[in-house]
Nucleic acid binder design. Structure first.
Length: 859
RNA sequence: GCCGAAGUGGCGGAAUGGCAGACGCGACGGUCUCAAACACCGUUGAGGGCAACCUCGUGCGAGUUCGAAUCUCGCCUUCGGCACCA
């Protein structure tokens, strides 16, 4: 059965087997070294000949849990950088390390390692890994926040804020362990809230702490005009700021046996219209007047309740789910609108930090007050009702705000529309000095004190004579000592370092003590992108000219878990820097994109302690960096994230193998394909050439849009389709045509930002084969779509009857609706589906994309 | 609990008012091989039918629309954040 042609086929296949295989291990390090040598990713900040593009990715915390999640964040961002370079832009793409923080201190305590050594060795390892992904970071701009050359400027900025009245010190409560001092939330464990190290019951303790006055910017922060944030982030920030309009109303305490009365009790309410429905008052257990107002016979119970509330988290206290608790303190308040005396309670659902720390309770019109009143048998008095519903009994708080509601049981105000009544009540109170319109925010000032070692020391000295004294600028930085007893007991570790602690007062030279708190690490991350522009500048935090030239940052990418805290703190910090005259801008970034989070295979957050991390080194050794980059982008939408699963890497690797084959061996033939080497049935070479151009330019059109929207998964899918088309023509006569060359060239250019190594290798070989001088693919211009190649002369129109697909027809592009209807109604399948009934109407949807024929439905 | 997001084949996902399941994984069948691996070709939502085709189908329940995975309302589940993890 062996024929001559079989034998020659076999010889050809033998030749195929000797074609060099795609070997990432041999090409990736080579190109990484070459790019570094060429300085491909080093940005000339002073180059004004090209449009500037500042691309910022959230700098990583060097946790030691180095895992695939870091690649998931960074490699698509690198593709964005490369895509913009191919558009002729001067891209600045820096990187740094968020090097201060609790994990270093925890590791130090657990394993007796120095936090600096632990952090620096993690950074060294991360630098190496970030290089293996082929990312084009500008390492010359690197910033490490734990370096004195960075944190010096945290101190300097803090002093400017202090001078401007934007920083202040006040008492506030922390979670406190008698043995281990202040605890972070993650160091408080279990429902009984015990200390992670010693198991002691966690208490609250009031400490003097530093704050930044960010509530000053609440209204400005609500304004997102001119910046492009994802809608969910805007909503979350808006809710976090939580602006409420209403009134502050002054109640007074009633005289009683134990107490003369007459103190002011201010409450904030969003519903001044319900003032007549206030049947009791609730203070936060921490309210300053609780002590004075409590009746002697209530003291024991009140004290116990206050102690219990201290142990609860805010999340527990605010839960509307659980049963309301509280105690009466044996005092009464006088309602300014009608002189009525109402009992005063304390309850944990009222927070000291929001509003005035006290509420007037209107159970008829507030769910929480209703639940409380039910439990304690308090009066529920309806004061707002829709017409005709005045006498309908309430079976829950009536909150709905509909037009036409009027006040009832509200003295002279009864009968007024609720809105107007509320305004009148407030205005009348204001005239008597017993109230005023007011706005309250949920946003609180930013507590920046931490009783920790591994952070920026505050540049403050406490002098017995002069009180709080700033460290003079010329004495900055206040250096963090290298070793302290960070595992000892009691307050902040720096209090145990005598050499650090004891200092001469800058004013009188007398013995004084340094501030021993360090700064929240969110301070570090609140301005680091400005420092990237002049990381070594010795005489100031920022280079004003570069900052004004290069910022606001064009695009910021990072995790959605930062939606409120970091992304809001940094906006606040920018406004503070502006207000002390350092910068001009109002917002730090023009556009923010939040990518999703990659989880372990168990669906939990990846961490070493859970043992669910994926080490990128292993994957790179097996598949190469390009495959991993591409796989991470192909997994799903970038803003979604999801559990890690290596299933499917093979498919992406095969795709790169196909690209390799197309690029290196276009004329070879595969065994296994009966049609290999011949054009598709019925297609001439001319047809094939047109089809190739069409495919390449259609792909370019779609892929360009996908890159712009960060839709990497569909971008790669489209490149796979193009590669499949090219693969179909492999070994045919078409491979000798310019259309083939153009399509291959476009495929490589479109793939280059995502898979930079393999495309550089194939690109180089093609240049060499054509005897052209070498030039990096990454310095090429992005190709342009040829509209004539993309145009179609026919299109396929789906035909529906009553919304159900019944047929499809291919028609010329320019056909009129009337002609189309004639064709459609003549189709056999359509006539069968109509069953002889007359169309009621025919809908031409979306510019002729679809036809829907509507007929009367049988019953 | 509150705020935000997501639920689509065996799996990751595509389609954001107009052909549900692009692309890929897995599975099954085939080519190549002494064999295996690699590579390549084909099939693959479920049910029915020899077939042409038909019916069902996007977490659950209602609604709007000529037409709904997509919009609206009410639930359920999962994930992120809730101010000292970063």
């Amino acid at each position: 059965m062996t024929t001559t042609s079989d034998r020659s086929d076999r010889a050809e296949r033998g030749a195929r087997a000797r074609i060099e295989r795609y070997d990432p291990a041999s090409i990736e390090p080579k190109w990484q070294a070459k790019w570094e040598e060429l300085g491909l990713h080093k940005t000339d900040l002073d180059d004004s000949t090209r449009p500037r593009y500042y691309l910022l990715t959230m700098y990583p915390y060097p946790s030691g849990d180095i895992h695939i999640g870091h690649w998931y964040i960074k490699t698509p961002t690198d593709a964005i950088a490369r895509f913009h370079r191919m558009h002729g832009e001067n891209v600045f793409f820096p990187i740094g390390f968020d090097a201060f923080g609790l994990p270093a201190e925890n590791a130090a305590i657990k394993n007796n390692i120095n936090p600096r050594d632990w952090t620096m060795s993690n950074i060294a390892n991360m630098r190496r890994q970030l290089r293996t992904m082929g990312a084009t970071f500008d390492w010359s701009a690197e910033v490490v926040t734990a370096d004195p050359s960075y944190y010096k400027w945290n101190q300097w900025l803090f002093l400017r804020f202090l001078e401007a009245g934007l920083a202040y010190r006040t008492k506030s409560a922390v979670d406190w362990c008698p043995n281990d001092g202040t605890l972070a939330r993650e160091q408080v464990e279990g429902v009984d809230r015990h200390c992670w190290r010693c198991g002691a019951r966690v208490e609250k303790r009031e400490l003097d702490q530093w704050y930044l006055r960010v509530t000053k910017y609440a209204d400005e922060l609500l304004d997102f005009s001119g910046i492009d944030f994802p809608e969910p982030i805007r909503t979350q920030q808006t809710n976090w700021i939580g602006r409420s309009e209403g009134g502050e109303i002054v109640f007074t305490t009633a005289p009683s046996d134990h107490h003369a009365g007459g103190e002011e009790l201010r409450v904030f309410t969003t519903r001044p219209d319900t003032l007549f429905g206030a049947t009791f008052m609730v203070l936060a257990p921490e309210h300053p007047l609780v002590e004075t107002l409590t009746a002697p016979d209530r003291r024991a119970e009140v004290k116990a309740y206050v102690a219990q509330a201290e142990r609860e988290t805010e999340i527990e206290r605010l839960s509307t789910d659980r049963e309301k608790t509280g105690v009466a303190i044996g005092a009464e308040a006088i309602n300014p609108v009608n002189g009525e005396r109402i009992p005063i309670f304390i309850a944990d659902y009222v927070l000291a930090g929001y509003g005035t720390g006290a509420i007037m309770a209107v159970p008829a019109h507030d769910e929480r007050d209703y639940a409380f009143a039910e439990k304690f048998g308090l009066e529920i008095r309806r004061v707002v009702a829709a017409p005709g519903e005045e006498d309908i009994a309430l079976d829950g708080a009536y909150i709905a705000h509909t037009a036409g509601e009027r006040l009832v049981n509200s003295g002279d105000y009864s009968g007024l529309p609720a809105d107007e009544g509320g305004r009148r009540i407030l205005a009348d109170l204001e005239a008597r000095g017993a109230g005023r319109a007011a706005v309250t925010y949920r946003l609180r000032d930013w507590l920046i004190s931490r009783q920790r070692y591994w952070g920026t020391p505050f540049p403050i000295i406490h002098c017995p004579t002069h009180g709080i004294v700033p460290v003079p600028d010329e004495d900055l930085p206040v250096l963090l000592p290298d070793t302290v007893d960070y595992a000892g007991s009691g307050v902040s570790p720096l209090t145990r370092d005598e050499a650090f602690l004891n200092v001469a007062c800058p004013i009188d030279g007398e013995p004084a003590k340094r501030e021993t708190d360090t700064m929240d690490t969110f301070i570090d991350s609140a301005w680091y992108w400005y420092r990237y522009l002049s990381p070594n500048k010795p005489d100031g935090p920022i280079d004003y000219d570069q900052v004004e030239t290069w910022t606001p940052v064009e695009q910021y990418t990072g995790g959605a878990e930062h939606a409120v805290m970091h992304l809001l703190y940094a906006r606040e910090f920018t406004k503070m820097m502006r207000d002390v005259g350092l910068i001009q801008q109002n917002e730090p970034w023009k556009k923010v994109f939040n990518q999703g989070q990659i989880l372990g295979m168990d669906g939990e957050r990846m961490s070493k302690s859970r043992g669910n991390t994926q080490d990128p080194d292993e994957l790179v050794a097996k598949y190469g960096a390009d495959t991993i980059r591409l796989f991470l982008m192909f997994m799903g939408p970038w803003d979604q994230g999801g559990p890690w699963s290596p299933t499917g890497i093979g498919g992406v690797h095969r795709f790169l193998n196909r690209v390799w084959t197309i690029g290196i061996d276009p004329t070879g033939l595969e065994p296994g394909d009966p049609e290999a080497g011949s054009l598709p049935a019925g297609q001439s070479e001319a047809d094939a050439r047109t089809a190739l151009r069409h495919a390449a330019h259609r792909t370019l059109q779609a892929v360009t849009v996908d890159y712009g929207n960060f839709h990497f998964n569909t971008m790669i899918a489209k490149l796979m389709e193009l590669a499949n088309v090219l693969m179909r023509y492999r070994g045919t006569s078409v491979t000798a045509t310019p259309e083939w060359d153009e399509a291959v060239r476009m495929l490589l250019l479109m793939l280059a930002p995502a898979a930079p190594h393999i495309t550089e290798e194939i690109w180089s070989r093609r240049l060499e084969a054509a005897s052209e001088p070498w030039a990096s693919i990454h310095t090429q211009r992005w190709p342009e779509v040829d509209p004539t190649a993309v145009a179609e002369d026919t299109r396929e129109v789906p035909i529906q009857v009553n919304g159900k697909l019944r047929d499809k027809v291919t028609v010329p592009v320019g056909i009129s609706e009337i002609e189309l209807e004639q064709i459609v109604l003549a189709r056999d399948k359509v006539r069968a589906a109509l069953g002889g009934k007359e169309p009621l109407k025919i809908i031409h949807a979306g510019g002729g994309r679809l036809v829907n024929i509507v007929v009367r439905q049988d019953a």
